[in-house]
Design a binder for these strands. Structure first.
Lengths: 343, 343
DNA sequence: CTGTTAGCGCATTCAA
DNA sequence: TTGAATGCGCTAACAG
């Protein structure tokens, strides 16, 4: 029809015809069908963001960054939760390919190359977010977890801690691995061998953090500090410490990853390595959109953003006399005990 | 092709043919094109969830509820942020209709009937979530905000407060209106007239809460308690109180709406009217999916779920001598000052 | 059991 | 300046 020309402002149309068409459109409430359009053009103007849990503020912030860039460029964004399950992830990716999304932003559920290989085979551009995958020929945006952990642990060591437990995430996830690696390097740099290491793996959840902390606290040689591999683990660990009748940072210091947004926490308390989540989402989406543009596969880009170490009140020096700390169960905790030192 | 029959397991296919087709599929890595399928069947197996801010834990929890039900039924879910902007919402809805989503879960940016009317006109089923719209012939799922506010304020009145400020949301949003209405009814029930009312409207954000609280604190007759219309406002209000050198609940009690998930808060502190966000998402999605089923428009359903009032440490009795509270700036705050009384 | 025809809504190409 | 033909990938309804 001539209608198409009107809608797309292409070709020659008489003023008269245009007006009649526009009138009809308004009257009928006609809305063009993007499906048919996509079928013809083989592009849907839709991207997908596949992540592990939309419920985590780190990811929602990242998602906002992605969405803002995408919609600015006229793209829609579909979110998918995998819950760290590879099979779930495989299902989601298949569904997305069926829907012919133009590109995928992927926070891989595991550091296997399968998912990326599948997408590449299907000619769907991918940008890997937040985590490493073995296949290095892929665009990616993340932070240097190894270094972040190294610095956090260094900070604890400088405070005088020697018994530090790493409460990490699922062993199959690269960020969990890297954060343990940084932890080890920091200990080693102080001449602390592997006998000083206390490493626990568990889910990236509050329950996981709670359980790991509980175990760590039960060790005969109780640690004086925790390195939590993400925000939920840190919260869970804190709750476990409190439930054990201990306090932070008097008995146990806690440092962690991923800051909680200022609009969520009344009194920022945790010492963290904060990732620029919003910017990560933006950067990844920009890279993805650029790649949609050119046919020629430019060499792949690997963006590694810096962490920001934010020191707050959850980290302090250890007790002089660790044995005495048992008796400190009655001491008052100190959350919110001083003025806010938010960034 | 016979291929279609294989993929859909329909009709008669010889074992031989089936195997050959399956082999070919595996080899080529063929993935069927849902767009074409949707074009034919006029259904996309996709729902949309249009909300104001995916960054708010209340909405992410709701979103998880919606997604879990949707994916369980083989539907995908698209998220859209409107940032409380009606024009943004209109754009998003148009885009969704163009994409021919099968149905929409809508948290309306304003209580105008326009958006719902548009969708109805386009024959796209809608379920309105969390907020009221004037058009009552629509399925909806929400909580009774008026009653929730009434009970929260009642609680404050029972503690002895008489100067209570309502820090509400955007005036055009039904939940903001209803929560003020409940506030008024509670005051009135104690014989407190409109001269006792302190009502502020602002954005549903931490910054909004901060600013409104700042204004309320500057009143010559300073309130002794705040009713915050959502979680972000409560957090912002708390920060403003602290910044003014005052403490909660000694100088100012705070009660609010929407609880923060336990995996986010180390020490639950705020007294709130909690909405069952996850369940709301589930219920709404189920209703939407049911409606997709039948052609005959069953009468519309209006689900109103109960709030759960959770009393924590942010609410307490007012000072005997309000004038003296000025000098309390140095007093220690009490966040985390007692054991956790989480539900 | 398997292949052919036709049409979902759109836009490019070519005629009128 | 406008209309008609064609095909994107799929499947229901028919032949074969």
């Amino acid at each position: 029809m001539t209608v198409s020309r009107v809608i797309n402002n292409s070709g020659y149309i008489s003023q008269d015809a245009r007006e009649r068409v526009e009138a009809a459109i308004a009257e009928i409430g006609y809305v063009p069908n993007t499906l048919a359009r996509s079928l013809r053009f083989k592009q849907t103007k839709t991207l997908a963001l596949v992540l592990t849990d939309i419920t985590n503020p780190f990811f929602t912030t990242l998602a906002r960054g992605a969405e803002d860039v995408a919609s600015e460029q006229g793209f829609n964004l579909i979110f998918c939760n995998t819950d760290e399950s590879e099979s779930e992830q495989a299902k989601e990716l298949t569904a997305l390919v069926q829907k012919r999304v133009d590109g995928v932003l992927l926070v891989p559920a595991a550091s296997s190359a399968e998912a990326v290989a599948f997408l590449r085979e299907q000619n769907v551009p991918v940008v890997v977010l937040d985590r490493r995958v073995p296949d290095c020929t892929v665009d990616s945006v993340r932070c240097d977890s190894e270094k972040g952990a190294y610095e956090l642990v260094k900070l604890l060591l400088d405070l005088g801690h020697t018994h530090i437990a790493a409460l990490s995430g699922p062993q199959k996830v690269s960020t969990a691995q890297d954060r343990v690696a940084g932890y080890r390097r920091a200990l080693a740099s102080r001449g602390l061998g592997s006998d000083a290491e206390i490493v626990l793996y568990g889910p990236f959840s509050q329950a996981g953090g709670f359980e790991m902390a509980r175990q760590a606290l039960a060790l005969q040689q109780r640690p004086t500090a925790f390195l939590a591999a993400n925000n939920f683990i840190a919260v869970g660990a804190y709750q476990a410490v409190r439930e054990a009748g201990l306090s932070v940072p008097e008995d146990i210091s806690i440092v962690g990853f991923d800051d909680l947004p200022t609009w969520l926490v009344m009194e920022p308390f945790l010492t963290v390595a904060a990732q620029p989540a919003y910017e990560m989402g933006q950067r990844a989406t920009r890279i993805l959109l650029e790649r949609l543009g050119r046919e020629a596969p430019a060499e792949c880009r690997e963006v590694v953003l810096p962490f920001e170490i934010i020191v707050r009140r959850s980290s302090g020096p250890p007790h002089k006399d660790p044995a005495a700390s048992e008796s400190s169960a009655e001491r008052r905790p100190v959350v919110a005990d001083e003025s806010t030192d938010r960034e």
